[in-house]
Design a protein around this nucleic acid. Structure first.
Lengths: 228, 228
DNA sequence: GATAAATATTGTAAAAAATACACTAAGAAA
DNA sequence: TTTCTTAGTGTATTTTTTACAATATTTATC
C-alpha cells in the first residue's frame, strides 16, 4: 500500500447526533444509507475514522460527506463501545452532537446516502445498533448544556425574537417559563444585540436580536454565569 | 488463532486519572512502567482494550491490573485521539477518571508496574504522550462534578467530619467557604448520616458522618438539587 | 375608521436563597 | 486552671428568584 493516510481504522467510527429546531419541535437528522452495511435503514450519520485523522476532524468530515453540513456547532458526546453494539465485528464509536440552524440547511446528501430527514425527537423511528441510545444520551446532554451555556442560538436563525428563543428553551427543557422573568434573565446576560424589528408579521412586530459571540467569549473569560 | 477474546485492539486504549485526597492535597496516582513501551516513565495507568471487552470493563480491568484498585468510583471522561498523541502508531484512548479513598489504598502494583506514587496535582511531573492534558481535563471535570453532585465522599474515608469534607471541597474548588454556610447547605441535602464522635484527637472531638447512598439515589430520582 | 385578533412589551411585590459575620463549647495538654 | 486547638451554632442583610396582569402595536376584518 502506497500510503497510509486514507486507510480506515476498522474498529473505530464516529457518529453524529444532529439537532435542529423548527420553531415548534426539536428534531434530529437521520439518513438512509444507500450502501451496505445498513443499506436502506434510517441511521445516524457515521463512518469510520481514518488512520491519519484527528477525531474532531473525522466527525466534521463525516458530517459533511453524509449531509453536506459544514461549519456547525459540534461537541464530543461520549464513546460507545459495547462489544456487540455493531453486529458484524467490534466497532467502538466516538459520538458527537451538532446543533444546526435548520432553516439554513439545504439537504445535500452525499453519494452514500439515499435520503435524509428530520424526525421529531418524540417520534423517532427505531434505528439500528445503539443509535437510539446515543440520541437519548445526546438529548440528556443538550438539556444540561442549554441550561448553563448559551448555545441555544446555534439552533436558531442568526436573527431571532425573544419569543422564538424562549420557545426553544421551553421545548428543549420541557417546561414553561414566565415571559418576563425569561427576558430579564436572558437580556441580563449581556450577550444579545438588539436589531431592527421583524417585518411582515400580521401582529405587533417583535424586535430581533442576534447572539454576540465575541461578547460571550469575553464574559466567559471573566467567569460570568450563564445559567438560565 | 483459537480464540479472539483476548486479543487486543491495537488502535484503542483506555487511560485512567485516579484522584485521591490526603486531607490537605488533591493527588493523582501515576505509575512507572516496568515494560516497554514507556518503560521507566511515570504515566497514567492505561492499556489496550480487548476485542471482547466493553469499555467500562476494560477501564476497570486495567485499573485493577496496574494498581490493584477495585470497586472505586469511575466515570468516562473523554476520548483523546490526536493522530500523533502516541508516537509509534495511531492509538485512540478512552480516558476515565476514578475517585479513591486514599487511606484504603494499599499499593499493589501489578507485574508490569515497577512503582506507583501519588503526586500532588500541583506538583505533577511531565508525563509522556498527552497524559498531562488528560489530567488537566479530568481536573476540570472533577471541579464541575463536585459542585453539582455529592461525589466528594468517594475521596474520603467512610466516616468523616464536616471539617474534612469542607476542606476537601475547598481544595478541589480552590476557594474558601464559610463554615456555617457550608454546614447548613451540606446537611440540608439530607444525604449525611450522623454517627458517633471522633476519638483520640487532642481537642474537641468532631462528630463523624457517613454518606447515605440509598437516600441520595432516592432523592436524585425525585429531582433534588445537590449544588454546593 | 372602528373593532377584533394576535403577539410584544413592561414592573413590582413577595418569597426564597445566598451571604456575611463572631462567639461559645469541648477536650487535651501544659 | 490555664492554654491551645478545633467544633459547633444563629441571625440580619443582601441578592436572586418567583409570581403575577395590564398596556402597546400591528394587521386584518367588518
Amino acid at each position: 500500500m502506497a500510503k497510509n493516510s486514507n486507510q480506515i481504522i476498522k474498529n473505530l467510527s464516529t457518529d453524529c447526533v444532529i439537532f435542529g429546531f423548527d420553531n415548534s419541535e426539536l428534531k434530529v437528522l437521520v439518513i438512509k444509507l444507500a450502501v451496505e452495511p445498513g443499506k436502506g435503514e434510517w441511521a445516524l450519520p457515521g463512518s469510520n475514522i481514518l488512520q491519519e485523522e484527528n477525531l474532531d476532524i473525522a466527525a466534521k468530515r463525516v458530517l459533511k460527506e453524509l449531509t453536506g453540513l459544514d461549519n456547525v456547532y459540534m461537541e464530543q458526546l461520549y464513546t460507545f463501545g459495547d462489544v456487540y453494539r455493531f453486529p458484524l465485528f467490534r466497532v467502538v464509536t466516538v459520538a458527537y452532537f451538532a446543533l444546526v440552524k435548520i432553516e439554513d440547511y439545504k439537504p445535500e446528501p452525499g453519494p452514500k446516502v439515499s435520503d435524509a430527514q428530520w424526525f421529531s425527537i418524540k417520534k423517532l423511528p427505531k434505528l439500528p445498533f445503539d443509535h437510539n441510545e446515543i440520541i437519548n444520551y445526546a438529548l440528556k446532554r443538550l438539556k444540561q448544556r442549554v441550561r448553563i451555556r448559551p448555545i441555544g442560538f446555534e439552533l436558531l436563525p442568526l436573527k431571532f425574537t425573544l419569543s422564538q428563543l424562549q420557545n426553544l428553551y421551553e421545548t428543549i427543557m420541557d417546561f414553561d417559563m414566565d415571559k418576563r422573568n425569561f427576558r430579564k434573565k436572558i437580556l441580563g446576560m449581556n450577550v444579545l444585540v438588539p436589531l431592527e424589528k421583524q417585518k411582515g408579521v400580521p401582529h405587533r412586530a417583535a424586535k430581533l436580536y442576534r447572539f454576540d459571540k465575541r461578547k460571550y467569549d469575553s464574559l466567559k473569560e471573566k467567569g460570568y454565569n450563564f445559567e438560565i
